[in-house]
């Protein structure tokens, strides 16, 4: 069962947006607006399929949803669909890993519906969005989103953890600006504990 009002899932076709049919419609719209606004760049030029679960939208509701999407440059609604009965959408458990063998540079955005492994640095101004884990075998100085789509067990690991922003399952790390510094050595892991992101050396995390 879904616990969030909206769920995003990348497919070959584009981005599927699931509107939870167990949540009141106004709240779904609210949540949709919110999620879109917080990842504006990610949706630039995206092809979008809206899945309404078991719910049948009224003409008015359809208009509301498409007007929300219209606010985002280049977002293209290609289809509106309803799930077959008893087939609730699920986050895929079997995830593939995308391996990137060069630095991810400023202005580059990378999305993968599984894990992302970067052999190199993620530079300031670069952004990684993974539905699974993000593993950086170098310095993470840009932005990393793990568990995009809602997986709260996802994590971010970096050899040098100095991100400008890190989020897991949509929860943003709340850190004072000087919390991340290049001075720390050794790999660190960021993950959710009690709804908050905790960053600690990998060593400690393993021995616990």
């Amino acid at each position: 069962m879904l616990e969030e009002a909206v769920l995003f899932k990348g497919t070959r076709e584009g981005i599927h947006i699931y509107l939870n049919d167990e949540v009141e419609f106004p709240q779904v719209v609210n949540s949709l607006e919110h999620r879109l606004a917080s990842s504006r760049n990610f949706f630039k030029g995206a092809r979008v399929v809206i899945n309404t679960g078991q719910r049948t939208l009224s003409a008015e509701q359809v208009a509301t949803v498409s007007s929300v999407l219209k606010e985002y440059e280049g977002v293209q609604l290609i289809r509106l669909e309803q799930s077959k009965p008893q087939a609730p959408p699920a986050i895929p458990r079997e995830m593939t890993a995308l391996i990137v063998e060069k630095p991810v540079r400023s202005g580059q955005q990378l999305y993968h519906p599984g894990h992302v492994i970067v052999i190199g640095d993620v530079n300031p101004g670069a952004e990684i969005v993974a539905e699974g884990n993000v593993i950086v075998m170098g310095a993470l100085r840009g932005i990393a989103h793990a568990g995009y789509g809602g997986d709260k067990s996802a994590f971010v690991v970096a050899n040098l953890m100095s991100p400008s922003q890190v989020s897991i399952a949509g929860i943003l790390a709340r850190q004072p600006d000087d919390e991340f510094s290049d001075a720390k050595m050794g790999p660190e892991i960021a993950r959710l504990r009690n709804g908050q992101i905790v960053i600690e050396p990998c060593q400690r995390a393993i021995y616990e």
Partner: peptide, 12 residues
């Protein structure tokens, strides 16, 4: 340096 990084990405 930030702009150079962007440009290097485009050149690559």
């Amino acid at each position: 340096v930030r702009d150079a990084d962007r440009v290097i990405g485009l050149l690559e």
